[in-house]
């Protein structure tokens, strides 16, 4: 009797526990479904248009495929080996590098100086900030078309102006001569992108402790000295962000070059992105082009990860 009692109570306990576990599982399942309902649309869209294409990009690059043939031939690393031997691809890579260096020179310090000047204005700061940001609002198609007309050798305002003041010698075919084409493009791209960096600098400048400048004033430091020994070091984090963004955006450049030169003349302004586009969509070398784009993607991602690692370390 006693024994029976205890077993039955034990059974009851077990049953209770079981139903509790079941209830918990039900709750868990319900929670999981709720969370999934929040995430699923994003997951689906992201998978179809980003994740799967990422895998496909790597997959294509190991095959030989023209984009139309029903079957693909596996060729291993052959596309990459060919790329390493492709003079135009290597040239495009070196142009990307040159583009990065020129952008850094034109973009970082001049924009910082501009931001410092704007931050010193007492009245009308918003006006200048808004005004100087204006070019960044325009689409790259607008910027590209606008600047190709500005650089036009015959009717463009630059050459018309140079000729009108008697400097015909300086009037060049800006987008048609190998030596000038990349700098001319980088100037147009700087014009289109500096606004974002200016805003970031302005935000960073707001956080600098004013007492530092007052102390420097007492020491009799001039504006240039103050710029290099207070402003620049205090803005280290902002500078890090800006420099990395300039580098990444330079590597990503496509639209302006495509609109203004299509990589010409004679590949002199070819970047990896324009070369890859041509190879895929006008030469039908789809898998080869994909290999080139994977190289570009890896460069950008490795750089981004390395930079974030460096930033986290230097900030802690």
């Amino acid at each position: 009797m006693n024994l029976n009692d205890s077993t039955s109570s034990l059974e009851m306990d077990l049953k209770k526990n079981l139903s509790l576990v079941k209830g918990k599982n039900k709750l868990k399942l319900k929670k999981l479904i709720t969370i999934l309902s929040f995430l699923l649309p994003a997951l689906i869209l992201y998978s179809i248009f980003m994740l799967i294409p990422m895998f496909d990009a790597v997959r294509y690059s190991f095959f030989d495929w023209d984009g139309a043939a029903p079957s693909m031939n596996f060729v291993g690393f052959e596309n990459y080996i060919k790329l390493a031997d492709d003079k135009i691809f290597l040239k495009a890579l070196s142009h990307n590098l040159l583009w990065v260096v020129l952008s850094l020179i034109l973009m970082v310090i001049p924009t910082l100086v501009l931001a410092v000047l704007i931050s010193r204005v007492k009245k009308g700061k918003t006006f200048f900030r808004a005004g100087f940001y204006l070019p960044s609002v325009l689409s790259l198609a607008v910027v590209g078309v606008l600047w190709s007309k500005i650089y036009d050798p015959m009717m463009g305002p630059i050459n018309v102006f140079l000729k009108s003041i008697g400097l015909e010698n300086l009037a060049k075919n800006w987008l048609g001569e190998p030596f000038y084409v990349i700098p001319a493009l980088v100037i147009a791209s700087t014009w289109a992108f500096y606004g974002l960096y200016m805003i970031l600098f302005l935000a960073g400048l707001q956080n600098i402790n004013h007492e530092l400048y007052e102390a420097a004033d007492l020491d009799g430091a001039g504006p240039i000295r103050k710029f290099w020994s207070i402003t620049v070091p205090s803005l280290r984090n902002t500078l890090n962000v800006v420099i990395s963004m300039v580098i990444i955006n330079s590597l990503k450049g496509f639209a302006l070059i495509w609109i203004m030169t299509q990589g010409g003349p004679f590949y002199m302004s070819e970047l990896v992105s324009t070369y890859v586009y041509k190879a895929a969509f006008s030469m039908n070398k789809v898998s080869y082009a994909t290999a080139g784009s994977v190289v570009l993607g890896i460069i950008v991602i490795v750089f981004t990860i390395a930079f974030n690692y460096y930033r986290e370390r230097s900030e802690n």
Binding site: Y46, I48, F49, M50, I52, P53, M54, D56, A57, Y60, G67, I248, L251, K252, F254, V272, S273, V276, Y277, A280, F281, V286, A289, T290, S293, V294, L296, G297, V300, I301, T304, I305
Partner: peptide
Amino acid sequence: GMSLPIQAIIIPIFFQ
């Protein structure tokens, strides 16, 4: 996906 340049996946996107 934020750091990935779109150029790197535009070809597969087209075929997708």
